[in-house]
Design a protein around this nucleic acid. Structure first.
Lengths: 340, 340
DNA sequence: AGTTGGCACTCCCGTCAGACGAGTGCCAGA
DNA sequence: TCTGGCACTCGTCTGACGGGAGTGCCAACT
């Protein structure tokens, strides 16, 4: 039976262990938290909690440490999000409002998140595939070199250079620009790609070649999911605070280099739905000592990407969860504004 | 007196210490390198080298370790660049040739460099201020919203959104586009900014407001030196290989977060001129245990940015220097091609 | 003069025993 | 059901000790 006081004990253990990084004993517990009972009672409760698998003893005569299962219970039942302080709220809004473009938003967010949580922060760049085409611009740099600029609803801009075999007159280029925008503007990117692919057949034969070249590059840029896999990382230095280098720091440090791994870690939680993955719950056994707090972001419930923090299982969950949610909301709002 | 054999001894000490990470003694030296003399002789040489400050003994009855001065001598007099293997050359060219745009070049380079050297690699994004304006494009997203796109000779593209107080007819916008490009295209960015600043006075009064808004944003983008301070970093996981966490790893890990610090570390070496800064020679006392191998890059001797690797003073200088130079040359070549 | 073998010396490092103390489990009593 | 007491466990710290790597110096050799 796990009654209320035992939950209190578990909460106290988690909080103390997170704070001190050391196994916590019964005596220290009753002293630091006003539990109102004696150490002996706490010991009895601990014995039960251990039997149920919520805490664990590194060795006889040592204090207790929460297990992954214990953290899970803590997060599900015991944790209340630490409200952000006014200063923090202000920091978030002023910092993010100062961003000049999309890349800047992402970079500022990731930095901010790592500073707020003192953890490693990860922000996925907004997915290209979910957005719509806002405009396509063609710029003739020379008669045979055209720069193709693809502007998406999220604010992302992709540019590609096209080399043409023959010079194309400006009037033809203008025509092509109109045709492309008619076919694609306002359309979801996947649909736009297929609509464009049909374009070369619809123009005059002498334009087919140049149209084909331009459209080919555009379609390629649209179906290029590279940017879907881009992430920004910040706060690796925070790892230095952790003691157990080999189990906690090194594997994570290696994972940070592999952006694909990070994306999988972030997962695909819905907008405004916090996901907490604790230790072994995650997809990688090497990262059994690390937890992830993540959420999706995007305007109007549309999932454009994910962001979150990773750290050792022994992390400040309430604080991390609050910060992740706050930053995600701001980012969503900004993406919404740019898009209205 | 430091004669040839003593230099050989120093070289051997550096090589062994880099390989083993342990102080090297006289006996091990003569065994591993065919020095052709007895340990006692080597000991005498070592005593001289120590007196001159090239090597150092952590404590009596320990082997010797090179000092910063010893590494300096090694780099200046004794090191010959390790030639890249054919496979490495191929890896560099195929990887970098596959880059689709400027950001991609930078990101691939930094990753490549960290893999080649197994160190932390840093690549500065090409400086905006040294490049010329290739083209400015204006796109009317709605009658009162104009996207301004600035295309530079290096291939960098900056975009900004401008909100206008009143709708601007397309014909006026076309006029403005022509005027802007006449004033700026082909011009160095600083000069272009001042040329543009004068533009609002030269147009019809009813256009002055919109022209002012567009030009203002452009000038701001041009004088925005944010991108001059951007760097890409890769290979932080390689730090995990180093033992002395507190002196070597932690300070460097913290420095990696501070891009300004990294830029200062890279310094401003000329194109094709390798700079090696060893330990205390660098600008930060906290990084007294780290060395930097860096060089500038850019087409035609034009310094657009720097790249290099950082690591503990005990690093493989010949290998790092060769890799840094090879990557810098490839990057320079690619920037040249995109620019011809 | 430079090189070499021999030798005593220094000092790091790993091991081991012993003391200490934090923390526990259990039990009897309130 | 809670509490105080108590014996017990076991990790950690300390100091002593021996082995070994490496040195510096010296006398002898080339």
């Amino acid at each position: 039976m796990v009654d209320d006081r035992k939950l209190d004990v578990l909460r106290a253990i988690v909080e103390d262990y997170v704070a001190t990084e050391e196994p916590v004993g019964s005596k220290a517990l009753v002293e630091r938290h006003g539990l109102g009972v004696s150490p002996a009672t706490v010991r009895n409760d601990m014995a039960v909690l251990e039997e149920e698998g919520y805490i664990h003893q590194p060795h006889t005569s040592a204090g207790r440490v929460p297990t992954d299962k214990g953290y899970r219970l803590f997060v599900d039942k015991l944790a209340t999000l630490k409200p952000m302080s006014a200063a923090e709220r202000r920091a978030i809004s002023t910092l993010l409002d100062g961003a000049v473009d999309l890349d800047d938003v992402v970079q500022r967010s990731v930095r901010l998140l790592s500073q707020l949580t003192r953890q490693v922060a990860i922000v996925q760049y907004p997915s290209l595939s979910r957005s719509t085409v806002r405009h396509v611009e063609l710029v003739a740099l020379t008669p045979t070199r055209v720069m193709v600029i693809l502007i998406l609803s999220t604010g992302r801009v992709e540019q590609r250079l096209v080399e043409l075999d023959e010079p194309v007159p400006d009037t033809d280029l203008a025509e092509l620009r109109v045709a492309i925008n008619q076919a694609s503007s306002g359309v979801q990117i996947a649909a736009a790609a297929s609509a464009l692919a049909a374009l070369p057949d619809a123009v005059r034969p002498e334009q087919a070649a140049s149209t084909g070249a331009v459209v080919g590059v555009l379609v390629e840029a649209m179906s290029d999911h590279r940017s879907d896999e881009r992430v920004a990382v910040s706060g690796a230095a925070n790892l230095a605070r952790y003691g157990d280098f080999d189990t906690a720091v090194r594997p994570l440090l290696e994972a940070l280099e592999e952006h694909v791994v990070l994306l999988k870690l972030l997962g695909e939680s819905g907008v405004d739905a916090l996901t907490v993955r604790i230790g072994h719950e995650g997809p990688y056994s090497e990262l059994a000592a690390t937890s992830v707090v993540a959420t999706g972001y995007g305007p109007q419930e549309l999932h454009l990407g994910s962001l979150g923090v990773v750290g050792p299982t022994r992390m400040d969950y309430p604080g991390s969860m609050a910060a992740v949610r706050a930053v995600a909301r701001y980012v969503s709002r900004i993406l919404d504004e740019g898009n209205q």
